[in-house]
Structures are given as structure tokens and as C-alpha cells.
Design a protein around this nucleic acid. Sequence first.
DNA 1: ACTAATAGTGACAATTTGTCAATAGCTTAA
DNA 2: TTAAGCTATTGACAAATTGTCACTATTAGT
Lengths: 143, 143
Amino acid sequence: MYKNEKSDEKFCMHPHGHSRGSHALVSDCADGIPRRLARAFILLFLAEGPSHGYEIARSFRESMPKGFCADPSVLYRMLKSMEEEGLMTSSLEESTSGPPRKVYSLTDDGYEALDMWASGLDGLSELLADFQKRYGRLRKGGK
Amino acid sequence: MYKNEKSDEKFCMHPHGHSRGSHALVSDCADGIPRRLARAFILLFLAEGPSHGYEIARSFRESMPKGFCADPSVLYRMLKSMEEEGLMTSSLEESTSGPPRKVYSLTDDGYEALDMWASGLDGLSELLADFQKRYGRLRKGGK
DNA sequence: ACTAATAGTGACAATTTGTCAATAGCTTAA
DNA sequence: TTAAGCTATTGACAAATTGTCACTATTAGT
């Protein structure tokens, strides 16, 4: 299963149209915000409280732009590798409404990683602000 | 040669420390902002005026955080693939101070792509603002 | 018994990056 | 005149990341 939302429309960030007919289509891009940023949000979710993969996936679906919501297997894979990196630990917990869940919680290294992401993302914000300023100048001044 | 800046310190975004001793080091991360964003800035540079690879590389070095400055070959490769996607065209121009340069300028598709990046990055900015808000709440309230 | 929601794993291909060697033109100074 | 050093670009290969999809398994409701 897991045939989730196909053909996203928003947050297109790499128009690889190959000149389809006359001009690039907007609707043919599937990703959006770089996938790696999902790690930052996973850390944030877990800092707000322990959780398991399926629930984290739901949080993404409910509060993030569609194009940013990875296929569940991608999410699970991230959780696994982040655990291997020592950013979180997991424990199986029985559920009343389905199979047992793997509940993750952050380690100290995980909190540290979150802090580093936070400052890294500050840098990214500045960069984006710069981009937008210069882009805005273009639209006013030239062309 | 091209042995450019080694061991960057800033804009670390993926601490993969594997618990080196006791806690993750900050200085062992080499990337930073996702490389793909460089494409947006390349388009921006070229929208500000035609340019060639070597100069674009210099612009990056001079106005972007170190970790975001790709190895020149990476930059050249991007330019090549973006040209293949029809976002820009190139023409060889003689230089008085070295070998001929490949000067790129944006096509209409290139300007369109820039516009799409601009709106995509708006979305990213919102996402980051959200992250920062939630991260800030954490630091005040809990833990 | 069947279906749907819940919960997670594994394998493989495709794409994107990182790294580094190689080529080549031009300028300056020993 | 030759070597050093900046300018300018290309190419190949390995490593890492991502996308896709099939698969297993438990529980709840009809």
C-alpha cells in the first residue's frame, strides 16, 4: 500500500521541464523543500515528546506542505539511521489499536543535534532573506 | 589543484558524530545548506547579469557562508546540467587575462525557473519560521 | 471472512554529491 | 625560457541520499 499523495503542486523547487512543448510546467515537480530538513523536524517533534514513526508521519501530513511529506518508508529509514547515529533511542510499546509501536525519544546527542540544526537553520533563514531581497530588487529595477 | 577551504566550521546541519568519545563534535560537518539551493542562487546571479563559472564561484566565495560554497567542479557541473535543461545558454568569450570563458545567460525558462524558486523559497521561509517558533517555545517552556 | 486502518521493514534503482586528477591559456618574475 | 601561479573548465569514479514499491503483521469493524 502506501500509495500516498501523487503529483504535488506546491513548493516546486526544481523545474526540470526539458522544454516540454513550449515552457516548463509547474505541476511536474514532486519534491520541494530538501528532504534532509525533515530530520530537523523529526528532532523537533521528538523534543516535544516521545513518539513513533506512524504518528510522526501523521504530524507531517497534518502540518507540513504536501511535497515535504516523505513516503513513510523514507521516514522510517531516517528514524532508523538517526537512532544508529545515537540521536534517539527506541522501545517497543504495545498498542490497543494495532501492532506494537516503536517509540522514539531523544538522547542528549539528539537534543544537541536539534540545537545545531536550529542555528544552522538560522543561517539558512538569513540566506533566504538575502535571496528574497535581491530577487525583489530585480523585479523592481531591471527587466 | 582546487584544494579549497577544508574543514568548515559553520552552518553545520547534520551532526553525525557516532558518539565520538562523549558528545558530538561541531567541527566535523562539511556541508551545511542543502546543495540544491545553490541552483537558485546561480539563477539569481545570472538574472543580475550574464556571467561565467569562475566568476560565479568567486561570487559564492565572497558572499555566501563557506559551507555553502561548492567545489568548483560541482558548480561547473550544475551549470552544465542547467544548460541542458534549457535554463541558460552559453557562449565562449575570449578573455584578456586567461583562457576563454563560457559565459552563461538566462533563457525565458531560466527566468521562469527563478520565479518558481522564489516562491518555493517563500514556502521554505514559512516552514523555517514555524520551526523557529516551535523551537523557541521548547526552550522557554519545557526541558 | 473480508476490508481497512495501523505499524513497520527491506531491497533495488535512480539521482545527487563529493572528491580529485587532468588540461590548458595567460602573466610575471627569476 | 622556464617555472610558478592565477585563470578557467572538464571528466571519471565513489559515496551518499532519495524514490519507489513490494511485503509482513496486528487489530477493529462489518
